[in-house]
Design a protein around this nucleic acid. Structure first.
Lengths: 248, 248
DNA sequence: ATGATGATTATGTATATACATATTGGAACG
DNA sequence: CGTTCCAATATGTATATACATAATCATCAT
């Protein structure tokens, strides 16, 4: 076993050992050469194979474990994990950015703004147990002259008191909140819906036309912050999510 | 500076130093105490604060950097990153599992199976440049007696030759493929659509009724494997995605 | 002023080492 | 035969150390 054991002649890039071990193993797993359930070499074997210390191998394997590609069991070794739960990273952009990416001028317009004590429905949407003050907003996002999305939002004023002072006349609540409230968690629901009279009217489409609805609830440190519903006319919007199983 | 510098008295769990540093810093960032752009303490300062080695601090900070919470700059220090790109982990389950989670009996039924040379549309959907053999499948997923989703699928036979021998009469192509082809990448498109005559007929809904459409393209090592379109009646289906900015 | 140079500094990567901890397999014992 | 207990083993975590690399700052010569 010489000092130059693993063929470091071949092709090109300058990878750290760490990254080389990572990508080697990832490739074996993703190519199927090592099927789910396969026991990958022990740390001490990889140590010999790559002629490096156990710490380096350990760091790489720990990372693969965290990424969910392998499972590590004490005394038994490390194993390729089962199926790959099909998860995808869904990027939910700011609507202004989406619109501007289309090369169209963006504009936000408030339709309604009501401050009230939370009713049962408000509490259900926000995930609140006790009653309290909420701000209910409705507004339209325009792409050029055409409505792009309708926004219906609830803000929990006990979590974001300053919002009570804001008019939101032509500032969308989304960007306003993001700058102020650090959120720690969010939940999205995505579904299709037929436009009712009011929605059709606001979006300038036919009643009954299909719409894509994206709802989001946001928490900051256990406290519900806001619930928002974006309603897009079906033609104007497609969500795109791209997924690669591991993250280097 | 004594040996017990950081108050290790307080509350409860047994955390490794590594995890404690991680969660301390995460909390500071997520709570907003350290705003975006804030320079977090140097490694040697944290080393002193937690009374541990630089390696331990370094490992924690590297992890935060990989998770995207902080940015590290040589000679300058580590900084809390800007906005938080709004990404969400979208789980796309196996339809069988979804249906069975509802407590309903699951069944798959093939509607159509055609082997052909890829046309222009097929190539566009699969992302193929050259022509070749493809398998076009259409099938229905049932929840109990009611249609739950319509599946329209293309399989690239140059990538998955064995699929040509399979009838897919009551085996859904999804699970069949997952067991055979390790996929490395996938792209999802999610949109709303009005059911046309054929879809309405298959799903037993009214023409024009809103549907949720999920399209997925899958690659294995650069080769397009399959394109699938799931069409759900709006009432039957909501996608849920949950998101927490960092991952332990 | 301007530009090149080198010292300083913080992070990046790797090593050797040590001890803790969970799990397995087998030996000893009732 | 089954249970208990111990030793072996693989991973988990942490340390001290070393050198590489990139960015910045102060200095000095032009």
């Amino acid at each position: 076993m010489s000092l130059v054991e693993t063929d470091d002649v071949e092709g090109g890039e300058i990878l750290s050992l760490h990254q080389r071990i990572l990508s080697d193993i990832r490739e074996k797993i993703l190519s199927g050469a090592w099927a789910p359930g396969h026991r990958i070499p022990f740390e001490h074997e990889l140590t010999a194979q790559y002629n490096c210390s156990r710490m380096t191998v350990n760091k790489a394997l720990s990372q693969l474990a965290k990424a969910g590609l392998i499972e590590r069991r004490r005394r038994s070794g490390s194993f390729v994990r089962q199926p790959q739960s099909q998860a995808a990273v869904l990027e939910l952009h700011d609507i202004r950015i989406e619109v501007e990416a289309l090369g169209l001028p963006y504009r936000y317009e408030r339709l309604e703004r009501v401050k009230r004590r939370s009713g049962a429905e408000d509490r259900a949407l926000l995930g609140l147990s006790a009653s309290g003050a909420v701000l209910a907003l409705e507004g339209l996002h325009f792409a050029g002259e055409r409505p792009f999305a309708l926004e219906q939002r609830l803000i929990n004023l006990s979590a974001v008191a300053e919002a009570a002072e804001e008019e939101f006349l032509d500032i969308a609540p989304g960007p306003w909140l993001i700058g102020r409230v650090p959120w720690s968690e969010a939940e999205h629901r995505i579904r299709a819906m037929a436009a009712d009279e009011a929605i059709a009217d606001a979006l300038d489409i036919d009643p009954g036309a299909p719409c894509l609805v994206v709802e989001r609830r946001t928490w900051s440190a256990e406290h519900p912050v806001t619930h928002v519903r974006f309603i897009y006319p079906a033609e104007s919007h497609t969500l795109v999510a791209r997924f690669t199983p591991s993250q280097g």
